[in-house]
């Protein structure tokens, strides 16, 4: 499959590339080139530019959107919301039927969920809050959802909270109750590219990409059930007594 990766040189991108490069033909794009040499072609693409996204999408079978901007008011809207609009337009225009979008957990389940509830699943009405990062990503996800309702394009929205390398963290060091290892995160993208689209419950599905967490706050059950996600890295030791 020819896969366009937008935001390929950020924190998550290299791990996704590592998980996919033996299985798919990758086109890496970002506003900055990769730090290390890569065998994959690279294009400079600003996701907020419709023209650049359209050009990069030509001939692709799937788009992965890993782009993100958290703090600057204007650029956050440009990247997180308008960027999704550009990607979905490009997907429709080029007949690309599979998009994997990404965002933080509070794209859907903001502080009103996290602060109060347990057993939180991704299939709840979005309450992102007014936090700039959360709201702009949530607007982007909503744009993806609306496009999927009107066009033959499937969107898998992967939500993350924190990433850890299990080799770099200590027993008992704790953390937020929604963590995944970089390797398992990459594997989730391989699964998302390989699942047959008609096996998805709808054309827009949201997944929590998380290891099995002992707190029972955010649940990865849907990701396991629908995508066949089986996180290899057990991170529960983060909350076990040293």
């Amino acid at each position: 499959m020819k896969v366009l990766i937008i935001g390929a040189t950020g924190y998550l991108g290299p791990h996704v590339v590592k998980a996919l490069e033996d299985h798919h033909q990758l086109l890496l794009t970002d506003i900055k080139p990769p730090k290390e040499n890569t065998p994959h072609p690279f294009q400079r693409v600003d996701v907020s530019s419709m023209e650049q996204v359209q050009r990069a999408a030509e001939g692709m079978d799937a788009i992965l959107n890993l782009s993100v901007l958290r703090e600057h008011r204007r650029i956050a809207f440009d990247v997180n919301a308008l960027g999704c609009y550009n990607i979905m337009r490009a997907a429709v225009d080029h007949g690309i039927r599979r998009v994997i979008n990404t965002g933080p957990h509070f794209t859907i389940t903001g502080p009103l969920y996290e602060g109060i509830d347990h057993g939180i699943t991704p299939d709840v009405p979005p309450h992102p809050s007014t936090i700039l990062y959360a709201l702009t990503k949530s607007l982007g996800q909503e744009i993806c959802r609306v496009f999927s309702q009107h066009h033959d394009v499937y969107v898998l929205d992967y939500l993350f909270y924190n990433f850890r390398d299990p080799k770099q963290v200590k027993r008992g060091s704790g953390g937020v109750p929604f963590i995944v290892s970089w390797d398992d995160a990459g594997e989730a993208f391989r699964l998302g590219l390989e699942i047959e689209l008609d096996r998805l419950p709808s054309r827009c599905e949201i997944f929590f990409i998380s290891a099995d967490m002992p707190q029972g706050k955010f649940l990865n059950e849907k990701t396991r059930r629908v995508l066949g996600f089986k996180p290899k890295d057990d991170l529960a030791f983060l909350w076990r007594r040293p």
């Binding site: 809050s129 744009i143 009107h150």
Partner: peptide, 27 residues
């Protein structure tokens, strides 16, 4: 709401979406 992808309609929907969060937080 059932917004379409027509920019004028989608944009209004997103405007509601934005305002709704301020209301939800009781701001």
């Amino acid at each position: 709401p059932l917004p379409t992808t027509q920019p004028s309609v989608l944009a209004r929907h997103l405007g509601e979406y934005t305002c709704r969060e301020f209301a939800r937080e009781q701001k």
